[in-house]
Design a protein around this nucleic acid. Structure first.
Length: 916
RNA sequence: GGGCGGAUAGCUCAGUUGGAAGAGCGCUGCCCUUACAAGGCAGAGGUCACAGGUUCAAUCCCUGUUCCGCCUACCA
C-alpha cells in the first residue's frame, strides 16, 4: 500500500495561492488572434475602480470563468478580457470624501489638481479588486487589462462622440433633467431610483381673479413649489370647470395672477379636485404642459435644491414680502411645513390628506433628485434604438433567460433621449469648444467657476482642440466643462477594448464577442447601450448571447447592504471554506429567474464536497501501485462498466446544461455523480477487489478507478479549478496543467445499459437489507443471515455476482444464501425485480416496533393501491387512455398487491412470534 | 397604473412534448468500519398557495383570487 501523498483534510489556502500564481506565471490565460480554434470571447463587465470584490461580482465572475475555462478546454481560441470602469460620480464621491476628511474640498483644490488626485488614488487602490479577482481564480488574459479612461479607450470615446455629433445624433438642449443636489450634476433617467413613500396631498383653493369669493381648488403633493406656478390646468371636458378656461386665478402668497388652461393630457378628472397647478420649471409633466401652453418657466430653486435667496426669490416669483422672508434659502423639506403654515394662517388650505407617492433618488448617493431646468448634452436615441430592437427581435442577439426579452423590448421602444453630460470632473471631458470672442465672454459659476455657456453659443466639436475659431479666428476657445456619463464609455466596451477605432487583428478575431454575462440591474444601463453602439459603429452586434443572472441576497432574501450588516464578504468566505466551495455554491444556485438567497451553511456544504473529492483521490492513490492496463470495455467488470456508463451520461449532461447556461443543473449533476455514484457506490464496490492482493479484477479496477477520477477532474475543473488541478497533478496524467486539457467527451463504448440495470437491482436489494438491519436492531458486527430468493434460475451468474457485492456492502458480516423456500424463513420483506430478499429475525429484536412499522406500511400501501386502482378503472372505463399507460397502471396495481400480501404475511408471522 | 416572475418537505430550491412527487441543508435514530465524523447507514417530514375549468388523467395547460418579489411609469 502506497503511503498517502495527500493530507487527510483538504486545505484550500495553500493550494489556491500556489496555483493562482502558477497559472499566471505560465501564461495559460493569454489569448491571441494567431491561436487556433474557433474564437470564444467574453468581455468582463468592468467593476468600478473604487470597488472591492462583493458577492455579486463573485457570482458574475464565477459564471464567466466557468464558461471561459470550459471553452478553453474545448479547444476554442478563448479570450476573457478584463478591465475596470472609472465610475465617474462614484469615484469622484469617494475621493471627495477623503478630501473632506483632510479639511479640503474639490473646489478648493481646483479641477486639474483634483483630477490628478483621483488618478493618484486609482494608482494606489485601483488594483484591489483585480487582485481579489485573481484570488477567485479568474482566468482572464490579464495582459490585456483595460480601463475606461486609458488612452485607447478615451480615443474611442472622443471618436464616437464626434461621429455621433456629426450625424446629428448628439445635441445640446435646455431641458428639465434629473438633478442630484448633492452630487451637483445631471443624471440620466435610469440613474434615478424610485421609492414609494408616504406623503401628503394638500388641497389649496386659488381665488378667481374676477371674483375672489369663488375658488378653483387645486391638489398638490409639493406645495412649496407653488410660488413657481404659472397656470392652473383643468380638463377641457370637465363640466365643473371648463367654463373657467381662459379666466385667471390669484396665486396665494404672491402678487401674481395666473391663467386657467384646458389640458386633457395633464389632467385626470378623477384625481384630487380635478384641477392641477402647473410649475413648468420644477416638474416633468408641468414642463411639457408649459411647452403646450407657452407658459413662463419660473425657476425658484438653486442647484442645492434650496429656495432662492430673498432678492432672487422675490424677483422670480413676485411673492409677498413676508412669504419671501419666511421661505428664502430654505431647503424644500423645510419649506414645505412652513408654507403649509402660511397657507393655514390665511385660511388658504382646504385640507391635508395622507397620500402614497414615489420619489426619485440619486443611484449613487440616495439624495432625493430634483427636476431641474438646465442646458445639457443629449443623445438622440431613437435612430440608435431601432436597429437594437431589431437585433433582439430577430434573435441575432439571444437573451437568456428569454423572459427578459420583453422587458428589453418594452424599454427600448419607449426610450427617451439620453442625457450624457455630467457636471463633475472625473471622466471623459466633452470634446466641444466655444469661442469666447464670438459670444462676448462667459459668466462663471459661483460654485465651481465653470463657464456658463448659453444655448445660442455654437459649439465646435472636434477630436482635439481647434487652433482657432473658424468664424472669427480667435484663439480664445473654452472647452465645455462637462464630462460624459460613465455609461457612455462602457457602451463602447466590447469594441473599444479590442482596439477600435484601429482595425486590429483582435477586433477581427474576437468581435462580435460570444457571451455577455451580467446581472439584470444593468440591462438598461449597459447592455442596451452596448447593443446600440456596437451596431452603429461596428455594424454588428457586440455579442451573440446575453446571459442574465439573478441578484444575490442574504438568507432572508434581503438585499445585501453595508448599513444592514448582512453582507457576505466573498473574501472572508473564500478564506473560511475555500474558493472552490464558494464558486460551486454560486453556480449551483444560479437558477434562472430567481434571486439567490445565500447562506453560509450552503457554502459549508460544498466545502464538505471538496473534502469528499479530496479523500476519494486519497483513496485512489492508495491503490495505484499494482499494474494498470488499458482494457477493452468487454473485459471490464460490472462495477467498472457501470461507473463508466454513468460517467458518460454525466459528461453528456454537464455539457448540455452548460450549453444552455444551466449552471445550477450542471453543478447538481456533478455533485450527484461524484458523491453518490463514484464515492458512495463505485469505491465501495471495488474496495474488496483492490484490497485483495492479486485479485483477478484488480487491473481493471485500478485502471477504471483512475481513469474515472482523472476524467471527472477535467469535467469539474471549470467549476472548481483549484482542487481539480491539485488532484490532477497528483494522479497519473499527461501534460503540464489541467487548465488546457481537453474537456471530456463521452466515449460511446462506455454505454452499458445492462450494467446500469444490474446496478439498479443491486442498489434496491442492498437498500432492503440495510433497512431490515436497522429495523430489526442488528448491532454492528452481528451476523445478519439473509436470504435472496429468485424465480429465474437463468440469472444464476448475475445472482452470484450480486451476492458478492451484497456481502461486502453489508460490512462483510452477512451470510448469504439462496433459497426458493423463502416463505418458510421468517421473512420481513420484500421484493425487487423478481428477487426477493428476506432477513431472518434475530432473537432479541424489538418485535413491537417492527410490527408497528409494518402496520403503517400496510396502511400506506392500501391507500396507494386504492388511488391507483381508481385511476385505472377510470382510464379503462373511458378507454381513451393510451394502452401502454393502462398497462403501466395494471403493473403498478399488481406490484402493490404483491407488496401488500408480503407485508401482511410478514406482519402475521411477527405477531405469531410475539405470542410465543 | 402597467409589465414580469414566484408560491412544491422545517429552510433553500429542482421538476416540459400532462401519465407513480425530488435534491441539498436542517431534524431523528444507529455507527469513530483502515479515503473522508467536513464521514457512513437508515428514517421522519408534502391536499405541489386558493377556487373553478379542460382531460380518462393536472404540480404542469386555461380562467379568476390571495400573498410575496422585481422592473417600469408623468396620476398632481
Amino acid at each position: 500500500m502506497a503511503p498517502f501523498q495527500l493530507e487527510k483534510a483538504y486545505d484550500p489556502k495553500a493550494v489556491e495561492t500556489r496555483w493562482s500564481h502558477e497559472w499566471l506565471a505560465r501564461g495559460y490565460f493569454h489569448a491571441s488572434p494567431e491561436q487556433p480554434g474557433q474564437p470564444y470571447c467574453i468581455v468582463i463587465p468592468p467593476p468600478n475602480v473604487t470597488g472591492s470584490l462583493h458577492v455579486g461580482h463573485a457570482l458574475n465572475h464565477s459564471l464567466q470563468d466557468i464558461l471561459i475555462r470550459w471553452r478553453r478546454m474545448q479547444g476554442r481560441n478563448t479570450l476573457w478580457l478584463p478591465g475596470t470602469d472609472h465610475a465617474g460620480i462614484a469615484t469622484q464621491n469617494v475621493v471627495e470624501k477623503q478630501l473632506m476628511a483632510e479639511g479640503l474640498s474639490r473646489e478648493s483644490l481646483g479641477r486639474e489638481r483634483f483630477v490628478e488626485r483621483v488618478w493618484q488614488w486609482k494608482a494606489t487602490s485601483g488594483n484591489t479588486i483585480l487582485n481579489q479577482q485573481k484570488q477567485l481564480g479568474e482566468s482572464c488574459d490579464w495582459g490585456r487589462l483595460r480601463f475606461t479612461m486609458d488612452e485607447g479607450l478615451s480615443k474611442a470615446v472622443i471618436e464616437v462622440f464626434v461621429r455621433l455629433y456629426e450625424d446629428g445624433l448628439i445635441y445640446r438642449g435646455e431641458r428639465l433633467i434629473n438633478w442630484c443636489p448633492r452630487c451637483l450634476t445631471a443624471l440620466s433617467d435610469i440613474e434615478v431610483e424610485h421609492e414609494e413613500v408616504n406623503g401628503k396631498l394638500y388641497t389649496i383653493p386659488y381665488p378667481l381673479d374676477e371674483d375672489p369669493s369663488q375658488h378653483l381648488v387645486v391638489a398638490t403633493t409639493r406645495p412649496e413649489t407653488m410660488l413657481g406656478d404659472t397656470a392652473v390646468a383643468v380638463h377641457p371636458e370637465d363640466p365643473r370647470y371648463n367654463n373657467l378656461i381662459g379666466k385667471r386665478v390669484r396665486l396665494p402668497l404672491t402678487n401674481r395672477t395666473i391663467p386657467i388652461v384646458g389640458d386633457a393630457i395633464l389632467v385626470d378628472r378623477t384625481f384630487g379636485t380635478g384641477a392641477v397647478k402647473i410649475t413648468p420649471a420644477h416638474d416633468f409633466n408641468d414642463f411639457e404642459a408649459g411647452e403646450r401652453h407657452k407658459l413662463n418657466r419660473i425657476r425658484m430653486l438653486d442647484i442645492h435644491a434650496n429656495l432662492l435667496n430673498e432678492s432672487e426669490l422675490s424677483l422670480a416669483t413676485k411673492a409677498m414680502p413676508e412669504t419671501v422672508a419666511a421661505l428664502a434659502g430654505l431647503s424644500t423639506q423645510k419649506a414645505r411645513p412652513k408654507i403649509e403654515q402660511l397657507l393655514a394662517d390665511q385660511q388658504a388650505l382646504a385640507k391635508v390628506e395622507s397620500h402614497k407617492m414615489s420619489i426619485g433618488k440619486c443611484y449613487r448617493c440616495k439624495t432625493v433628485v430634483e427636476p431641474y431646468l438646465s442646458i445639457q448634452w443629449f443623445v438622440r436615441i431613437q435612430p440608435l434604438a431601432e436597429p437594437a430592437i431589431k437585433a433582439v427581435e430577430d434573435r441575432r442577439i439571444r437573451i437568456v433567460p428569454e423572459s427578459w426579452v420583453n422587458n428589453y423590448l418594452g424599454w427600448m421602444r419607449d426610450i427617451k433621449d439620453w442625457c450624457i453630460s455630467r457636471q463633475i470632473w472625473w471622466g471623459h471631458q466633452i470634446p466641444a469648444w466655444y469661442c469666447e470672442q464670438c459670444s462676448g465672454g462667459f459668466l462663471r459659476s459661483k460654485h465651481d467657476n465653470r463657464p456658463l455657456i448659453d444655448l445660442d453659443v455654437k459649439p465646435i466639436v472636434a477630436k482635439s482642440k481647434p487652433e482657432k475659431c473658424s468664424h472669427c479666428g480667435s484663439t480664445n476657445l473654452v472647452r465645455d466643462p462637462d464630462v460624459l456619463d460613465t455609461w457612455f464609455s462602457s457602451a463602447l466596451w466590447p469594441f473599444s477594448t479590442l482596439g477600435w477605432p484601429e482595425q486590429t487583428q483582435e477586433l477581427k478575431t474576437y468581435y462580435p464577442t460570444s457571451t455577455l454575462v451580467t446581472g439584470l440591474d444593468i440591462l438598461f444601463f449597459w447592455v442596451a447601450r452596448m447593443i446600440m453602439m456596437g451596431l452603429k459603429f461596428m455594424g454588428d452586434v457586440p455579442f451573440k448571447d446575453v446571459y442574465i443572472h439573478a441578484l444575490v441576497r442574504d438568507a432572508e432574501g434581503q438585499k445585501m447592504s453595508k448599513s444592514k450588516g448582512n453582507v457576505i464578504d466573498p473574501l472572508h468566505v473564500m478564506d473560511q471554506f475555500g474558493t472552490d466551495a464558494l464558486r460551486f455554491t454560486l453556480a449551483s444556485m444560479a437558477s434562472p429567474g430567481r434571486d439567490i438567497k445565500l447562506a453560509e451553511e450552503r457554502i459549508e456544504g460544498y466545502r464538505n464536497f471538496a473534502n469528499k473529492i479530496w479523500n476519494a483521490a486519497r483513496f485512489a492513490l492508495m491503490y495505484l501501485d499494482g499494474p494498470r492496463t488499458a482494457l477493452p470495455p468487454g473485459q471490464r467488470t460490472f462495477p467498472d462498466r457501470w461507473i463508466l456508463s454513468r460517467l458518460g451520461r454525466t459528461i453528456h449532461a454537464v455539457t448540455t446544461e452548460l450549453e444552455s447556461y444551466r449552471f445550477d443543473r450542471a453543478a447538481t449533476v456533478l455533485y450527484q455523480f461524484i458523491w453518490h455514484e463514484y464515492c458512495d457506490w463505485y469505491l465501495e464496490l471495488v474496495k474488496p477487489v483492490l484490497q485483495t492482493p492479486e485479485h483477478p479484477d484488480g487491473a481493471s479496477a485500478r485502471h477504471t478507478l483512475v481513469e474515472t477520477l482523472e476524467t471527472t477532474m477535467r469535467l469539474l475543473h471549470p467549476f472548481m479549478p483549484f482542487i481539480t488541478e491539485e488532484i490532477w497533478q497528483t494522479i497519473p496524467h499527461q501534460g503540464d496543467t489541467i487548465v488546457v486539457q481537453n474537456y471530456p467527451v463521452a466515449d460511446p463504448a462506455w454505454a452499458a445499459p445492462d450494467a446500469e440495470q444490474h446496478f439498479g437491482l443491486l442498489e434496491q436489494t442492498v437498500g432492503l437489507v440495510r433497512t431490515g438491519r436497522v429495523l430489526l436492531n442488528y448491532p454492528p458486527g452481528q451476523q445478519i443471515p439473509f436470504y435472496v430468493g429468485h424465480d429465474d434460475l437463468n440469472r444464476q451468474n448475475q445472482l452470484n455476482q450480486l451476492q458478492r457485492h451484497l456481502a461486502h456492502l453489508s460490512r462483510g458480516t452477512a451470510e448469504v444464501s439462496l433459497t426458493h423456500d423463502w416463505p418458510a424463513a421468517r421473512l420481513l420483506r420484500l421484493v425487487a425485480e423478481g428477487l426477493s430478499v428476506g432477513i431472518a429475525v434475530a432473537e432479541d429484536v424489538d418485535l413491537k416496533k417492527a410490527i408497528d412499522r409494518l402496520t403503517k406500511q400496510i396502511t400506506e400501501t392500501d391507500k396507494e393501491l386504492h388511488r391507483v386502482d381508481a385511476k385505472l378503472k377510470n382510464a379503462e372505463f373511458a378507454s381513451k387512455a393510451p394502452p401502454e399507460v393502462i398497462a403501466e397502471h395494471q403493473d403498478r396495481v399488481r406490484a402493490l398487491s404483491r407488496d401488500r400480501a408480503l407485508l401482511a404475511n410478514s406482519e402475521r408471522q411477527l405477531r405469531a412470534m410475539l405470542v410465543t
